[in-house]
Simulated scan of single mutants.
Amino acid sequence: MSDQATKLRLALADRLGSEGWRSAVERVPRELFLGDAVYRTDGPRIDRWVPIRRSQTSEDDWLALAYTDQTWVTQVNGVLAEEAHDVVAGAPSSSSTLPSLVVSMLEAAQISEGDKVLEIGTGTGYSTSLMCARLGEKAVTSIEYDPDVAARAAAAISDAGFAPTLVIGDGLNGYAENAAYDKVISTCSVRVIPLPWLWQARSGGTITTPMWGWMGGVAFAHLTVAEDGTASGRFLKDDLCFMTARAHLAPPRPPIITGIGQARPSRIDPSILSNDTALWVAQLAAPQAQCSWGEGKTILIDVSTGSRADTKPDAGGGWTVHQHGPVKLWDAVEEAILTWQGAGSPHQSGFGLTISDDSQRVWLGEPSGPGWQLPA
């Protein structure tokens, strides 16, 4: 390893300022996990990506890129950057997350020496290797859904000198063979907590994962497993978010049609949904709905039932909502927002989550407070 790489790695550890993970950051060479190419956006277009190749970059520039505290996209729409010959259109499907976020996630999960960890989403393998460096490779099991991403990560992890248990498969199913785990940590966002994670964590163990829903609302869950097989905990103050598990992505949205169905005045200002926590609350109330905005309107569409709602401002003040279909989406959203406002409009950390084999309930304030079921 070059002196320049070592210098940059030590500087990165200084910037991250994590006592618990400092030695691991100093030890693990991030440049290995970027492979031979990464993507950058093609000018102002956020849906077009151009590969940056290591072979066409000076060694110093490549190392500077690797040790910048920045996320580097490594796969777009299933195409690894090494395999791209020109501009690739689409959305990122794998990336090397910025190191500060990786370390924040590991700290939030309260991972420390002696823990046995199940990681959902190997990705490039950088976070996997950090855990190997601190905990020992035998303590780490990591699952990756995409075979190409998994192969790329396995090579990088091996080059870094580690040999944890690496599994190619659906991380939502966990990995029962190495259970029970002290910590289950997910580097992908989920709509609901997969039950295998609950079953494979030991009593007193924890589940830490970012959560995301079809409206785009996010929260960061940290749950402790109880002796009775349930798990509960409050959402954390950090709004960490990772790419969503592919099985939990929203379905294609149908064409938007507005102004149909029954009309009435709205009891809330629809612009409240521009607030991150309000959007999270609205999503709890209408978890099957997707949300969009345009021409002063807020639009909700529930693909599963065909239900719709849209709001628009009135010339004389206020807003009119139209609702169509079996589910009155705006009724549910209004009620949830008013309940949240009545409690003082707390951040997501003012909510908690309790899960069992047959229920996943988000609650406001305390477990006995107002609550909403996550989708089955």
Rank of each mutant, 00 (worst) to 15 (best):
D3G: 15
L8E: 10
R9T: 12
A11Q: 15
L12A: 13
A13E: 03
A13F: 04
D14M: 02
R15S: 15
L16F: 08
G17H: 02
S18Q: 06
G20I: 00
E26N: 08
E26F: 06
V28W: 04
V28F: 07
D36P: 07
R40S: 13
T41K: 14
D42C: 08
D42F: 09
P44G: 07
I46D: 15
V50N: 01
I52G: 03
R53G: 12
R53Y: 12
W62H: 11
W62G: 09
Y67D: 09
T68A: 15
T74W: 02
T74S: 10
T74L: 11
G90W: 01
T97I: 07
V103M: 03
S104K: 11
S104L: 13
L106W: 07
L130S: 05
C132S: 08
A133M: 08
L135F: 10
G136E: 11
K138Y: 05
A139R: 11
T141I: 08
S142R: 08
D146S: 10
D148Y: 05
D148F: 05
D148I: 05
A156S: 12
F162M: 06
A163P: 04
D170Y: 05
Y175I: 01
N178G: 13
Y181R: 04
D182A: 03
K183I: 08
K183R: 15
S189Q: 07
V192A: 14
V192T: 15
P194N: 05
L195W: 05
L195V: 11
W199L: 09
R202G: 08
G205E: 04
I207Q: 05
G217Y: 04
A219C: 13
A221P: 03
H222Q: 11
H222N: 12
T230G: 03
K237E: 15
D239M: 12
D239C: 08
C241I: 13
C241M: 15
T244Y: 04
A245C: 11
L249Q: 13
A250G: 08
P251T: 09
P254H: 03
G259A: 03
R264S: 11
S266A: 13
R267V: 01
I268M: 02
P270T: 00
S271M: 03
L279W: 00
V281S: 04
A282H: 10
A286S: 12
A286R: 03
A289P: 10
G296N: 07
T298Y: 09
I299P: 06
A309H: 05
K312Y: 10
A315G: 12
V321N: 01
V321I: 08
Q323F: 04
G325M: 01
W330C: 11
D331N: 15
Q341M: 10
Q341Y: 02
A343I: 01
H347A: 13
L353D: 01
I355V: 14
V362C: 06
W363N: 06
G365Y: 06
E366W: 08
P370I: 04
Q373F: 05
